[in-house]
Design a binder for these strands. Structure first.
Lengths: 207, 207
DNA sequence: AAACAAATACCCCAAAAAGGGTATTGGTAA
DNA sequence: TTACCAATACCCTTTTTGGGGTATTTGTTT
């Protein structure tokens, strides 16, 4: 019996997937969480073998949540679901300790197989990502965003300019621009448009 | 008995929601479609009372698809689902003829109620959008994007600059900038960041 | 053929972003 | 206390974007 927690901010999705998985003979959804923080709370009282983690959640995003969970519960497997086929995330997630990464456009059979595979300790990448070239990378590199970085990326994603952001949160526009540059470097993105896209992936739009 | 078609590019979502709705005594999912074009094909052979439409689909997005469906099947009700709480969309969707707009973070009971309400002919807005001020608007205004506009927005969303896009599709960078300005005006957005966000909502990222 | 919308192209100027840095201070963990 | 990271702040220059237009051509529909 594989005990599963589903973490996703889309209630309909949770209810649907729960219904599907509970009808599998060897799987049981033991808890749900609507965001990363709630997931950490839930895990204090519930043992799970596999976390089905949406990357796209408010408050604590899937990447940061995965990193925290693997630190506190190293035996628990994290299978990440995303809408997007994006190479930045597969790398970031592998570094964070996820066991697998699957697109939401896959079907139930693949999902069930994926859960079983990561439960057995296998690493799993969605087939559609299998041709991604692994970037040469310094192991100390991190993808987790600081609080300020998260705040800045959110405000940029709202369409505010650096001067507007500086005025809003009472810092110099130079500082905002420095944060933006740091974000672009850290995440290996080439401009603000890619940064907004990344924010979309992290579920930071409309916050 | 309410006959329903689900249109969404996320197979897991479809399977899950289908499972949930098929267990309702007065509802039946009679078909599914993974994108707007497939939906139009499916509807040629299948009668449905309510379309459950994800706004976020490749090829033919939810707004354009809704407009086409209401023209060809005026009796069919369209209930749109989106991840995002965005005022641009509620307005665009009402103009396109949708009967309702619901966030994916609502639960099953709300979804079931919403389907029943739109089936009865009611207009439905998600509670969370109820405070949106209706913009004074010329009725002739349109939110549907031309092919070129869609192409430009996709390329911008990939992080390409206007000069890069011009070089890529063999037009002047001036033309690209004009398209961008036209898009911003048409969609009443204030800058490229908001345009990328809009592209995210339309599912145009990573295409 | 006429009308209209889409596509194309350009100009001007100001503001912002990008790309290259530099540096100091504050907060936290060891 | 020390070391390290995050946050803050600034400079310079070039490129791009945004905001204001202008105009012509092409394609489609009536």
């Amino acid at each position: 019996m594989i005990n599963i927690i589903i973490a996703d901010d889309h209630r309909i999705f949770i209810d649907g997937v729960k219904s599907l998985l509970d009808s599998q003979p060897d799987m049981k959804v033991v808890a749900i969480a609507l965001n990363g923080n709630e997931l950490l709370q839930v895990m204090k009282g519930t043992k799970a073998d596999v976390i089905l983690m949406d990357i796209n959640m408010p408050e604590l995003n899937g990447i940061n949540a995965t990193a925290l969970i693997k630190k506190q519960y190293p035996e628990t497997k994290v299978l990440v679901l995303s809408m997007y086929k994006t190479k930045e995330f597969s790398t970031a997630l592998l570094h964070a300790g996820a066991s697998g990464y699957l697109l939401k456009n896959t079907g139930l059979n693949e999902l069930v197989n994926a859960i079983k595979m990561v439960h057995e300790g296998k690493k799993l990448l969605d087939d559609q990502l299998s041709t991604i070239k692994e970037k040469p990378r310094d192991e100390s590199e991190k993808y987790t965003l600081s609080k300020r970085e998260t705040e800045i990326i959110k405000l940029l994603a709202q369409g505010l300019t650096a001067p507007e952001i500086g005025e809003k949160i009472f810092i110099s526009h130079y500082t905002v621009e420095t944060h933006r540059k740091n974000l672009l470097n850290k995440l290996q993105l080439k401009n603000t448009a890619e940064l907004i896209k990344y924010a979309a992936h992290l579920g930071l739009l409309d916050e």
